[in-house]
């Protein structure tokens, strides 16, 4: 998922002009570009079908056990499953919502309403746009530097307390790293939503004697809420699917006793694993034990269900409000 994709959020497309006339070259051209679209959709279909087919041996017989199971040394094991990965991924999503969402919305409102068109805002916006293009593995280095290692900045600003607070290689570190990663997405989508608020609404509020913050609270936020929410959901789904930063932050790949309930917050500063990490690990274990290829496919199905649910909610939400506002 990228900014550009999100960038299309509030836009309506232009339609072409249909004509009835025999036009061989034109027909050929249309067939060509249609085939591009069809191939893209076919790839998506093959990917989904192939993965589900591979996953079937796990999901058809022991779906519930698989969801409740843990990392195991052998693929044929009643207790094999992804609950620990679900736990890690769930809390990563929660941390994104708790940190990237408020900071992102605050930043968007500042840029659009408080500092609009100032040079400072232009600079911050440039920084944000470029942050959005930084490869995820580089964010992993940042997470390693900030939350895992006991680093110092310029030799005197100690960051050891951050590593202490997060517990080092923990869900908390992973969640914060990924929150930083998706922050630009949240800001940019929120900015677009705030920008779409009609100026009449704002002026009306001012006319009634509202202060700026009252205007933001009563006019901008309610109007922009669906757009902001869409962006946050997309950001969460992006964060849940990321693996590269987790490799650098140090998710566990081998075995893990701890298998807490989803809402049990006591495991947040402990060693952890996450769904994408489990997938990578099982793909590489399939040489020692070929059954892990199917287990990996089953874990992918679980991950895809989560990611696609978040994405579809976001898309539906956006479409509904777009239609309403015409």
């Amino acid at each position: 998922m990228t900014l550009a994709t999100i960038g299309t959020v509030a836009r309506r497309g232009a339609t072409g002009f249909e004509r009835k006339r025999t036009d061989v070259a034109g027909g050929l051209f249309k067939a060509l570009i249609l085939s591009a679209l069809v191939v893209s959709l076919l790839v998506l279909a093959v990917l989904l079908i192939d993965t589900v087919a591979d996953a079937w041996s796990q999901l058809s017989t022991r779906a519930w056990d698989f969801l409740n199971g843990s990392l195991r040394s052998r693929s044929i094991d009643d207790k094999l499953g992804v609950k620990q990965g679900l736990y890690g991924s769930f809390w990563i999503g929660v941390f994104v919502a708790l940190t990237a969402f408020p900071i992102g919305v605050g930043a968007a409102i500042y840029l659009e309403e408080y500092a609009a068109k100032s040079r400072l805002a232009a600079l911050i916006e440039l920084v944000i746009r470029n942050l959005a293009g930084v490869p995820s593995v580089v964010y992993g280095l940042l997470g390693l530097f900030l939350f895992v290692e006991r680093s110092t900045v310029f030799g005197f600003v100690g960051l050891g307390w951050l590593a202490d607070a997060t517990g080092g290689r923990s869900v908390l570190s992973a969640g914060l790293t990924l929150a930083v990663l998706v922050l630009p997405i949240v800001i940019i989508t929120a900015q677009e939503a705030v920008r779409s608020v009609p100026s009449g609404l704002k002026e009306g509020a001012y006319g009634l004697g509202a202060t700026k913050s009252e205007m933001v609270w009563t006019q901008i936020l309610p109007y922009a809420a669906p757009g902001i929410l869409t962006g946050t959901l997309l950001a969460m789904s992006r964060a849940i699917g990321e693996a590269a930063p987790l490799i650098l932050v140090g998710a566990i790949t081998g075995g893990l006793t701890r298998n807490p309930e989803l809402w049990d917050a006591s495991g947040l500063r402990e060693k952890f694993t996450a769904l994408p990490i489990i997938i990578v690990e099982w793909v590489s274990e399939r040489g020692r034990d070929p059954g892990f290829a199917e287990a990996a496919a089953a874990a992918i199905v679980v991950l895809l269900v989560l990611v696609l649910l978040l994405n579809m909610t976001a898309i539906l939400l956006r479409n509904r409000f777009e239609r309403k506002r015409g």
Binding site: L98, T99, I103, L172, W217, L229, A265, R269
Partner: peptide, 26 residues
């Protein structure tokens, strides 16, 4: 939504003040 935002902002500000946030058995 904004109420939640404010609360979590406050929480994150306090959280960095030194309290560990979550209870831990380690």
């Amino acid at each position: 939504l904004v109420l939640i935002v404010g609360l979590s902002l406050a929480a994150s500000a306090c959280g960095s003040g030194g309290s560990d946030g979550s209870p831990s058995g380690s």
